[in-house]
Amino acid sequence: MTLECRDLVVEYSGGGYVVRPIDGLSLDVASGELALLLGASGCGKTTLLSILAAILRPQRGSVRLNGREVTGLSGSALTEYRRHSVGVVFQAFNLLPSLTAAENVQVPLRAAGVSARRARRRAEELLGQVGLAQRGLHRPGELSGGEQQRVATARALALDPPLLLADEPTAHLDYIQIEGVLRLLREIADAGRMVVVATHDERMMPLADRTIELSPRHLEGVPSRGEVHLAAGEILFRQGDLSDLVYVVDQGDVELVRMLADGGEEVLSRYGKGEYFGELGPMFRLRRSATARAIGPCRVSGLPVSDFRRSLQQRNGV
């Protein structure tokens, strides 16, 4: 049993411009492995989970579960995949408030055509596995966050899928509840399933067999400063690129351009000799929010953030 993702690209437009939260991502998870998708908000963790759950289709790339391509599924094949191949534990749990814990666990079973009696038995068994054997008749509103999390996990495992996805499983829990959830996820992986967890919580790292960093934490060392000569119209960096250096214009002019969803572009600003740009990306580990292009022949100096801060302090006489 393996999950293979290759060269995934997800792109969407919002506010008139194009965002690419996932750009060329590849990932492998084997049975019994717990993979951690780690990163800050907006880095594409949930987007990736949505792709693995066959809720979102990537623009490019493939997702294969046991060799079967997932991204092209539709109709009944898609429903079958969602029922039998993948279980999802949502960040907000998404239990139906009108149903008891046991009934919530029965929902995917009944939807898959399992008889009422067998569904009841299976729900009891799963709630027992997650330590909630005595809470089956309670509604979600009567359960703690941790208990709801476990009911949601039991529901995700109802049809015994080989792949379990968990979105921010520690987000709404206190440290005691977190411990229980971590143990449960590890046990589920150890039992032979593939478990993919999206989180921004780095405390989960020791739990994982592999960690996929989705934030643009690309600078293993300090990038070296350097001088760049550009011809007219030449691109210095593109919108969506990983950010490394802050640039100062030594000679000529550079413009920052935003690429729009309709294929057009919008000039945001122009920088001349002595002016700097592109400082927020490397400072906050964000991707480039615009493309930098030389207007005419020009020369720019690229500075690591620390050098840039120093030069800024010198310039301001601090």
Partner: peptide, 16 residues
Amino acid sequence: VRDLAALKAIGVATRD
């Protein structure tokens, strides 16, 4: 809406 979305996501058919 959220409940319906979750049900769809876990494979409950729209007709149900």
